[in-house]
Design a protein around this nucleic acid. Sequence first.
DNA 1: GTTAAATATGGCGTATACGAAAAACTAGAT
DNA 2: ATCTAGTTTTTCGTATACGCCATATTTAAC
Lengths: 231, 231
Amino acid sequence: MSELLTKGTESKGQVSDRLADAIRDDILSGRLGPGERLGEVSLAERFEVSRGPVRAALSLLSECGIVTIVPNSGARVRLISREDARALYEMRVALEGEAAGLAASRADQASAQTFRMLLEQHAEDIASHPEGAYLQGSGDKDFHMVTAQMAGNPIILRYLTRELYPQLALLRMKHRNVVGRGAKALREHKRIAAAISDGDPEVARLLMRRHILNSWAALEAQLSETEEDAE
Amino acid sequence: MSELLTKGTESKGQVSDRLADAIRDDILSGRLGPGERLGEVSLAERFEVSRGPVRAALSLLSECGIVTIVPNSGARVRLISREDARALYEMRVALEGEAAGLAASRADQASAQTFRMLLEQHAEDIASHPEGAYLQGSGDKDFHMVTAQMAGNPIILRYLTRELYPQLALLRMKHRNVVGRGAKALREHKRIAAAISDGDPEVARLLMRRHILNSWAALEAQLSETEEDAE
DNA sequence: GTTAAATATGGCGTATACGAAAAACTAGAT
DNA sequence: ATCTAGTTTTTCGTATACGCCATATTTAAC
């Protein structure tokens, strides 16, 4: 079978799933730019598999929203418009707000401890990186992921990890040098974590909603700048 | 090509899409019960197509959450557990609550008029059917669909129509003779519509959340009864 | 010279067949 | 009766072929 796939990545599971992972990595790491063609035959040759798994993988990625498939025309790396980004953030406000509320309603001592350690770690990261690539870095992702996991809702968690976060990552591909709200975001995270640890769903939901709306405001401002540059 | 498909259904679009629609109808209309096997070859023979489109269709339906695919074993009609139902309703609270809020923030006169007509129609339906199959009937679906469309967020709308509502329909397959909160639900709908027409996002979101939580409480009570019967 | 139609090409969608691998079922032995 | 081993069924991956659609190129007409 393929040598390319079994080497770098884990060699278990369906070929189509591994393929989808590989292509997703290629996209989210920037090796494949937005709008780029994803021919079935070229991919099949590149990964040394047949067209069947390639079709399945592309179909999967299209469900996740990081590639668009035009019938009889082909698949391309999706390019996310500004309107898409707005809708995406509205979705995120709803889901992560709910996740924070659910996490608060199901909080226990162990989760409070997890948050404490996580936020201390993030504080150190910020201190060592004064320029604050905190947001968009692994730190921000960790916080939101932990919150989503604590919500205890597999459906919400699945949507966030499978569709929303990959699309956000894809959105940020085009707009490099992210502003990074750094310390500000960390303060907001601390208050959210406190509300969750205290078992206060309404406040946790409200704070998380605000936090993501702030994040959207920062990103939208940056999108406007980039658009001006393009003209 | 196929005669079975081109006759009853619209004959445009991909074969795999039409196939997915046909299978989904078979499931949601009760012709295929939960847990039933969906063999690729039998489906291919039944619809007179090859296995390729069948695989694509099953993969699609698995993404929508109405069939489960076990690798190397096959696809079955999904059976939704009580925990799945709870998670599903938590998702619904978040999304439809947000949709109501967004609809309120974007409401205009035309939408208010639409709501007025829709609710009058529903009131007549209730009057003519005193036993109140309003909930789960087309009426309830219409109200929530209209609200979701007015939200102006394609991502939320897509998730609701593509995944959440089909799964809810599948969930209700097992539990017939639905209680139907009828008139009560209609009253709640009216207040939600009023908040949306008034352009009051916070109240609209709050009322919609409550409305769906009430709906969940009714359904959960019924699930408990059914479980007792089964034992 | 510009536009529009006709052609050519490349890629996708579908059909079919075969080998391999995994799961499920069956039968036998302890 | 339970566990194990072998058989069978089904899916998964591969290979190949062909028609159709979409785009690009060329050609013709205005």
